[in-house]
């Protein structure tokens, strides 16, 4: 309960911006790891997906809108990320 309340208090548009910047720096940092490994690719795509969710939910303010809109936006993000991951796994 305490942890949940603290997270809710800290989760606002300013911390969303900060998290997006930090995740971008993580992506940049991971680009220096010279590993063509599946794990790095998966981490990078999960980070991109998480950033996309924050943009749709908090920047576009789609939290609480009709299910159809959320399905289209999150569906687009999920399909694109998943298709990229599958294509990279096929190599």
């Amino acid at each position: 309960m305490w942890l949940g309340d603290t997270v809710n208090k800290l989760y606002n548009i300013h911390t969303v911006w900060l998290m997006l910047v930090l995740l971008t720096l993580i992506t940049y940092g991971l680009s220096f790891i010279d590993a063509n490994g599946t794990a790095i690719m998966m981490i990078l795509m999960v980070v991109a997906f998480a950033k996309g969710v924050m943009i749709i939910r908090d920047y576009m303010e789609l939290k609480g809108v009709s299910l159809l809109w959320k399905l289209i936006m999150y569906g687009w993000l999920s399909i694109v990320c998943l298709a990229i991951v599958v294509a990279y796994l096929l190599v």
Partner: peptide, 18 residues
């Protein structure tokens, strides 16, 4: 925000993921 969302995928895809 749509322009931003698209770039969020484009940056790792074209610049980083190998």
């Amino acid at each position: 925000h749509m322009v931003d969302l698209v770039w969020i995928i484009m940056f790792p895809l074209i610049y980083v993921v190998r």
